[in-house]
Write a protein that binds this DNA or RNA. Structure first.
Length: 381
DNA sequence: ATGTTC
């Protein structure tokens, strides 16, 4: 038998950061292992919200060398979470009134070029979607502070227990999808040599989409704040779908995040389902074991189809527009309401506990939903 | 996830 060496050992390290209590679907693990066998792959990490995706798993981070993989980033390049401190007291919240009126559908009427420029982004031809949350698991949510666990960090962020917050989950809409399609048409799920012209071209468009998505979250926030008659200050904004270079010891590693929040960009919010707490956490430790990444949410437990089938038997659509927190959900797409219902997701407290136990984060505060905006009916457009 | 299913 040959002595193992770096030359003969090509498989990446596979690591799943989840306690036995955190249920992870077998298919997600198989997908993680398949990604680990791709050329150049060094490390494949599943976070506790790991679940199956289209070919590659979601809730995962991958480090490669020499090759990068647009397919692993997926179509929603730049997707992420932004948190705003709202200049309004929680006791002044008018959730029911806001739920009846708030409307973020349709193109935003204003100077989109100026909004993009503010965020270092430029026009792409997809500006009709700028300022819209999109579909799937995207949302804009007004939240209140449930409990402060680390007052020092909470106050250092300029936050106040009695004030509302706004969390926006959205991405690059049709732009990222178009960028991935260009790649997939030619290479399918195959990667690109990192030093190739095609890789440079992809990364240029990718970086543009990351900035565009950040601008999009800011405009969604502005529209939502206008809708509730408030102003806000952005506290944080992190991307969980991207590929970025990491320079270590003269080598360049490519860090792919697919539904994985950054460990190395300060505090992040890890949202639960739309009927659960969200966690404001501070990354701690070294981040090495988790590829400098964190869980990005609760993680889907049931497929969209399974959620529709199971939950339509148990709940009326009307009942799902209110939550156990007495918060309101604006979701006039009936199927989406069932697909995104809380039972379709894993328990967020377990996911966050796993991150705490792994020495990756400290909980700063928990945030409870007041009003979740998913979508108004298309008929109103 | 998606100017989706003109």
């Amino acid at each position: 038998m040959n002595t193992p060496s770096s030359e003969t050992s090509t498989a990446a390290t596979v690591r799943i950061i989840a306690s036995p209590q955190s249920w992870v679907e077998g298919e997600a693990v198989r997908q993680l292992e398949a990604v680990a066998r791709l050329p150049g792959m060094r490390l494949a990490v599943g976070l506790p919200d790991l679940h199956p995706g289209k070919g590659a798993p979601v809730g995962a981070a991958f480090e490669s060398e020499g090759f990068l993989y647009p397919y692993l980033v997926g179509s929603d390049i730049g997707c992420g979470m932004g948190l705003w401190d709202v200049d309004l007291l929680t006791r002044k919240a008018k959730a029911e009134r806001w739920a009846a009126k708030l409307d973020l559908e349709g193109p935003w009427v204003g100077d989109t070029d100026a909004v993009l420029a503010e965020h270092g982004a430029s026009s792409t031809g997809f500006e009709a979607a700028l300022g819209t949350v999109g579909g799937g698991n995207h949302f804009a949510e007004v939240q209140r502070v449930e409990e402060v666990h680390d007052a020092r960090v909470f106050e250092a962020l300029g936050l106040r227990e009695e004030r509302l917050l706004l969390l926006v989950h959205s991405g690059s809409r049709g732009l990222g999808e178009a960028i991935l399609r260009t790649h997939v048409d030619r290479h399918a799920a195959g990667g690109l040599a990192a030093d190739s012209e095609e890789a440079r071209a992809y990364l240029t468009r990718h970086d543009g989409a990351v900035l565009w998505a950040k601008a999009n979250r800011a405009l969604v926030a502005q529209r939502a704040l206008d809708g509730i008659g408030a102003t806000g200050r952005r506290v944080l904004d992190v991307c969980h779908n991207s590929v970025t270079p990491r320079h270590e010891g003269g080598r360049v590693g490519w860090l792919h995040r697919k539904g994985a929040a950054p460990w190395d960009e300060g505090p992040v919010v890890i949202p639960g389902s739309r009927g659960a707490l969200s966690y404001l956490v501070l990354p701690v430790g070294t981040g090495e074991q988790s590829a400098h990444s964190l869980a990005h949410g609760a993680g889907r437990k049931w497929t969209r189809t399974a959620a529709r089938e199971r939950l339509k038997e148990r709940f009326t659509a009307e009942s799902l527009t209110r939550t156990s927190f007495k918060s309101h959900v604006v979701c006039e797409d009936r199927d989406l309401l069932f697909e995104e219902a809380p039972p379709a997701y894993k328990a967020i407290d377990r996911v966050v506990t796993d991150l705490v136990d792994a020495g990756l984060v400290r909980v700063v505060a928990t945030l409870a939903p007041v009003l979740t905006y998913k979508t108004r009916s298309r008929a109103s457009e």
